[in-house]
Amino acid sequence: MQSLLLLVDRVSTWLGQIFAWVIVALTLMITWEVFSRYVLNAPHDWALDVQIMLYGTLFMMAGAYTLAKNGHVRGDVLYGFFRPRTQATLDLILYFLFYMPGVVAMTYAGWIFANESAAIRESTFSATPLPVYPFKFVIPIAGAMLLLQGIVEIVRCIQCIQRGAWPSREQDVEEVDVDKLKAMVHVKDEDIQALDKFVAPHGGSK
């Protein structure tokens, strides 16, 4: 079971890392558009439409990745003081009351929305019309990934309630742990203190 949960984590992470490159594309495009508009005096009427579609794609596809990393916003001021079992029970209730109904509705409605858009070959209203319907299929795809990752998180909640501790999850980016870093490079506190004499001001000792 744990290997299956981690597999879903890896898929969410992989998709999140791929679509993170949209940030680079957006940055380059906005930079070029600003240069083109204010230096070359040659703005593009379709630029804003593309930016909106790319940002929407990034926003939607980052959801499952963020959930897999336990990175969504919550009231940690209170939540962090709860025992793991209490945290898991609260999460489980909220998943069933709000998360799952909302994600199922978004996925279902998004699929209908995308198909209707494809049926009429929907495009933007700019002077240079761009196809919109391919991007609208991002909605049900993102919803399906959120649904799958949500099921994984529900299973984790149940496991935590049973065992009293949260199960492991796929790691990606985490804050630097100084103690782990010291152990990795085989450095002790005594070694660091021995180097102080080389960096301390010469006039500091008596």
Rank of each mutant, 00 (worst) to 15 (best):
F96N: 07
V77D: 13
A109M: 12
M106P: 03
P101T: 04
V104R: 00
F82N: 07
A114W: 01
M100V: 15
Q87T: 06
G110R: 01
I93T: 07
V104H: 00
Y79M: 12
R85A: 08
A105K: 01
L94S: 06
V104A: 08
F98L: 12
I93G: 00
L97E: 00
Y108Q: 04
Y95G: 02
L90I: 15
A114T: 11
D76M: 10
L78W: 14
A88T: 04
V77N: 11
A88V: 10
D76G: 07
G102N: 04
F96D: 00
F81P: 01
Y99K: 02
R83D: 13
L78G: 09
F81L: 15
R85G: 11
T107Y: 05
L92Y: 09
R83G: 15
V104Y: 05
V104M: 06
Y95S: 02
G102Q: 08
V103M: 05
D76T: 15
L92C: 12
V103K: 05
L94I: 10
M100A: 09
G102W: 11
L97I: 12
Y95F: 14
P84Q: 03
P84A: 09
W111Q: 03
D91N: 15
M106C: 10
L90A: 12
Y95Q: 00
L78R: 12
Q87W: 13
W111A: 09
F82S: 04
T86W: 06
P84C: 09
F96K: 01
R74L: 11
I93V: 14
L97P: 00
R74G: 05
H72T: 03
F98R: 00
L92G: 01
H72P: 00
Y79K: 09
W111G: 04
F113V: 05
F96M: 04
L92K: 13
R74F: 12
G110D: 02
Y99D: 01
D76V: 15
Y108P: 00
G75Q: 09
F98T: 06
G80E: 13
T86F: 02
A105P: 00
L90V: 14
L92P: 01
L97V: 12
P84N: 06
I112M: 08
L78N: 14
I112A: 08
L97F: 14
H72I: 10
P101Q: 09
W111H: 07
T86C: 03
G80N: 11
L97C: 08
R85L: 07
A109K: 07
P101V: 05
M100L: 13
A109R: 10
Y95L: 05
A88H: 09
V103R: 04
M100H: 05
V73L: 08
F81V: 13
R83P: 12
